[in-house]
Every structure is written in C-alpha cells, then in structure tokens.
Amino acid sequence: MSTVVETVTAIVDPILTAHHFSLADLEFVKEGGSWYLRVYIDKPGGITLNECVMVSEELSEKLDQTEPDPIPQAYFLEVSSPGAERPLKTEADYQAAVNDYIHISLFAKLNGKKVFEGTLLELTDTELTLELKDKARRYQQTFTRANIASARLAIEF
C-alpha cells in the first residue's frame, strides 16, 4: 500500500509545514480485520495531544475532499507523537540520535546476539558505533548499517 502512504504524505506535509511540525512516520496497515492510517508527528520539544487532534481534524477533512478517494476502504485515522522510543528511519533521524541511547535489532547475529542497546557515538554511511555496557564494563562496538533491521531511541535504565 505504498501508494496510499505516498498520497497521504503529500496531503499531510503542507498541513504539518503550516504548523511547523514534522512527519516522523506514516503507515497504512491492516491489523485484525481493520485498516489503520497512522500518522506520527513531531516538533522540537514534543507534540501535544491538542496538536494531534488539530492535525487529525485537518487531515481528515483534506482526505474527505480528495478525489479520487486515496483510501477507498474503511480505515481508522490515528495521529500521534512518535513517543520517547521513536523509530530511526531516515538519515536525519540517525544524525539527530548521535549521543543518544538507542536500541538496534540486527538481521543476523553478531557475537551470538541480534539485539543491542547503547549510546550512538559515531555514524558513517556504512557503519555506526555504539558504546555498550556489560555489567560494569563499557566498550565500543561497530555495526554494519546493512545488517540493522530496525533502530529506535531507547530509555536507559
């Protein structure tokens, strides 16, 4: 359903720009028997519930006015903040996360593990380096970006 995502992105971008918000993510997924259009928005300092409601109302109105209907099937529209553990999808997301604590999942095991959490120290086009903790010991580990299945901000405990 990438055409739905592309079409809705083009519709929501001017709304977000007008309010000085950014699009963190957008997905159109089927869960159970229902379709969901999820729009994750953000701004410096975070997004409020009232701002999510405002964008939801404006986007809903624009979607209703768009011909041909970009989403002919019934769906639920959800507009929210990406949250404290927002996904890292774009290069800008990764750049903004340098020096932050992140969680990565790998496609293939490295040293017997597929999941790592640590502080993102360095980032290149092909690799990223995390500072990891193993009990009281801290060490650096470099990961090939092509082996990263997903990444997100994480909360350090």
Rank of each mutant, 00 (worst) to 15 (best):
H19P: 01
F21C: 01
F21A: 00
F21D: 02
L23I: 04
L23C: 00
L23R: 12
A24L: 02
A24Q: 09
L26M: 09
E27T: 12
E27M: 12
E27L: 11
K30H: 11
E31G: 15
G32E: 05
G32D: 07
G33V: 07
G33W: 06
G33R: 09
S34M: 14
S34W: 13
S34G: 06
Y36S: 07
L37Y: 07
I41L: 05
I41H: 06
I41P: 09
D42V: 00
K43E: 13
K43C: 13
P44F: 00
P44V: 06
G45I: 01
G45W: 01
G46P: 08
G46D: 02
G46V: 05
G46C: 02
T48P: 15
T48V: 08
T48C: 05
E51T: 05
E51H: 04
E51V: 00
C52T: 06
V53T: 13
V53K: 13
M54P: 04
V55W: 07
V55P: 09
E61K: 11
K62T: 03
K62H: 13
K62S: 04
L63Q: 08
L63A: 06
L63D: 11
D64R: 02
Q65L: 15
T66A: 12
P68N: 09
P68A: 10
D69N: 14
P70T: 03
P70N: 05
A74N: 10
A74G: 08
Y75D: 01
Y75R: 02
Y75H: 05
F76L: 11
F76N: 14
L77R: 07
L77Y: 01
E78P: 04
E78C: 09
E78M: 05
S80M: 08
P82Y: 10
